[in-house]
Computed example of a mutant assay.
Amino acid sequence: MTKHGTARNRGLAAELKALRAKAELTTRQVAKRVGMSIATVNRIENAQREITPEDVAALLAVYGVTGPERARTLVLARNANISGWRETDGEGLPLHLRALTCFESEATRITDVAMLRVPGLLQTAAYIRSALIAVGFPEDKRKEMATTRLRRQEVLRRRFPPNYRAVIDEAALRRPAGSRGLMAEQCRHLAQLTELPNVEIRVIPFEHGSHAGLDGSFMQLESEKHNPIIHVELPQSSMFLDAEHEIRPYRETSDNLWRVALSSAESVKFLRRIGSEYGRE
């Protein structure tokens, strides 16, 4: 199967699909209004076709999208075939978050490398709220962001879930993101998640010393239909990498860390031990 689609093109497709849903229109209704076939609309929304700025402008008009949102979407359309994508947060939920959710839903394999914070797909509701407060996330957007993150986690429990693995540095577990009770609950949650057949978590303890992951956290998403994507979360923005020469170092780092970390069984014991320590008065 031929793989295709830059991160920008796939993100644009996800955005257009979400905007259609928000406008409460079917693909049949959209196709009729813009003069496209239903198949063409479906291919656009599945990133199986090059999306031109003209196509996007026509679709945005049907969806009633105007102002800054329209301008930003058109910029994305004009640059859709450029490798790599850095998106800066705007009003409402970040555009990259919609794209990330789409990439996760399409993934057959997800690898999370987490150095300072528990990966988003593994966080408890209490941990999410505490983390959002800690980074100064706007209060009026916190509930929506927390709900969105919890909804993203459903990908791990769907009927045909991706093969998910996470490498977590001990620093992410030792630095409290809230009360001791919150952290105890989070560590127990991580241990419980490993009971899912598609989830594997490995911990790198401090005693294993320095390692390649100390340069930063990232997520690697692989799918059957598209080329791999690396997601790097940055302050007030997010970055997606899709060029092979950019992806290769991240893949090598995650493979290296998998060997450096404790085994799966030892990691579960480690998580339970830290959880018990947090649970003590």
Rank of each mutant, 00 (worst) to 15 (best):
I230A: 13
T27Y: 03
Y164Q: 08
E144F: 06
I110Q: 03
G136E: 06
R72E: 13
E104P: 10
T111H: 12
A47I: 04
S37T: 04
A243H: 12
T101N: 05
L190S: 07
F103H: 06
I204E: 04
R98Q: 10
L16D: 01
R158H: 11
T148K: 03
K22N: 08
A58G: 03
A14P: 01
T6A: 14
A146N: 01
P235C: 07
V167T: 10
R78C: 13
I44Y: 02
I38M: 01
D215C: 14
H189K: 01
E87I: 02
M36T: 00
A80F: 08
R151F: 05
D215K: 14
R159Y: 10
T40Q: 00
E87D: 15
E252I: 13
L12R: 01
H96K: 10
V199T: 08
N42V: 03
L241T: 03
A261E: 07
P68K: 10
H211Q: 07
A184H: 09
G35Q: 08
R152H: 06
E195K: 12
H231R: 01
R109N: 13
I229F: 02
T66N: 15
L190M: 12
P161T: 11
E50V: 14
R43H: 14
E170R: 03
R109G: 09
K17H: 03
F103P: 04
C102G: 11
A13G: 09
E185C: 07
L100M: 09
A126P: 07
V30R: 03
L122Q: 02
V75F: 08
T6Y: 05
D242C: 12
T27N: 06
I51T: 06
A114P: 07
M219Q: 10
E195C: 09
L122G: 01
K17G: 03
E222S: 13
D89H: 10
E200K: 11
E195M: 13
L193A: 02
C102Y: 03
E104W: 08
I110V: 14
S179Q: 05
R129L: 12
V203N: 04
M239A: 12
R248P: 02
L16R: 01
L173K: 04
E170G: 08
R142D: 00
H96R: 01
Y278L: 05
D242H: 11
P176I: 04
V260P: 02
A146G: 01
E207T: 11
S254F: 05
F270E: 04
